[in-house]
Write a protein that binds this DNA or RNA. Structure first.
Ligand SMILES: [Mn+2]
Ligand SMILES: [Mn+2]
Ligand SMILES: [Zn+2]
Ligand SMILES: [Zn+2]
Lengths: 135, 135
DNA sequence: AACTAAATTAGAATAATTCTAAAAGAGGGA
DNA sequence: TCCCTCTTTTAGAATTATTCTAATTTAGTT
């Protein structure tokens, strides 16, 4: 059962399995919509909004999901982060496109050189507009 | 006078020159602190907080400054964006380091290929920790 | 089955940001 | 320089996404 896998993911990160966490994680894994807490709550309406927020915070803490806080709608968007990837944002529609066709190693090395830090992760957003749009 | 240059920048972007706008723009150009609206208001206390927000919005709209909304402090940080650059964030201290030692052209090309969009800009944050820190 | 630390919940609280609508100012033309 | 008009500024109220509280339930273990 698919349930098994979800439990494993949670346990591998030291999180207890509750049906709330299983539902929310599954929701994020199966939706490409980069939803907000409210959007998730609309669909999983049996789970309290406080739990939605608590769970999302936990999933972010352990690195299963990430936050995208760059859209102009003043809401946090969440994203399952099974594999590292970057985002392309269509400024006309605010659509977020996942992409991974770029090797970040040279960028990590550049950042290490400048800062002397141990690089642990990245957050890349590329903005674009529909090519046919005037201007 | 330095005033002249600031006026020119505002006018070049179609913004009227007010002493509030000149002050805020100069503040951002001369501080590396990536301040919040509140931090700016603390230092430029003659300017109302509403105007700080209004002005920052305008400067963002015309592209003179950018917003960094990724820190865990739940506040927007602002950054003079005279030249394109990326950010390295020390996760131990939340310090934001400016860097420009990386050519984004290949990344732009990768994004264009995936999305078909006309790429207009980017927002890159690289996270790191002090190398001596345990773990 | 019983235990206990952790998770969930409803609702209140917080606070960054936005809005309102009235007063002041900038810039252009006469 | 003096209007004129549109834009900007402002104090304070309003909004609202998110966080907090404290009581209840549950997961995982013994
Ligand atoms: Mn935010
Ligand atoms: Mn907020
Ligand atoms: Zn994504
Ligand atoms: Zn910067």
């Amino acid at each position: 059962m698919a349930d098994k896998t979800l439990r494993d993911i949670l346990q591998a990160h030291g999180l207890k399995s509750t049906f709330q966490r299983l539902s929310i994680l599954e929701y994020l894994m199966t939706h490409e919509t980069h939803p907000t807490a409210e959007m998730i709550h609309d669909d999983l309406s049996d789970i309290s909004l406080a739990t939605i927020y608590n769970t999302l915070d936990k999933l972010v803490d352990v690195g299963i999901i990430i936050v995208i806080d760059t859209l102009k709608d003043d809401k946090r968007h969440y994203d399952y982060y099974g594999e590292p990837h970057y985002h392309i944002i269509n400024s006309n529609t605010n659509e977020i496109i996942d992409a991974d066709n770029f090797d970040v190693a040279p960028l990590f090395e550049a950042a290490r050189q400048v800062s002397g830090l141990n690089i642990t992760g990245f957050h890349i957003e590329i903005y674009g507009v529909d090519p046919d749009q005037a201007k």
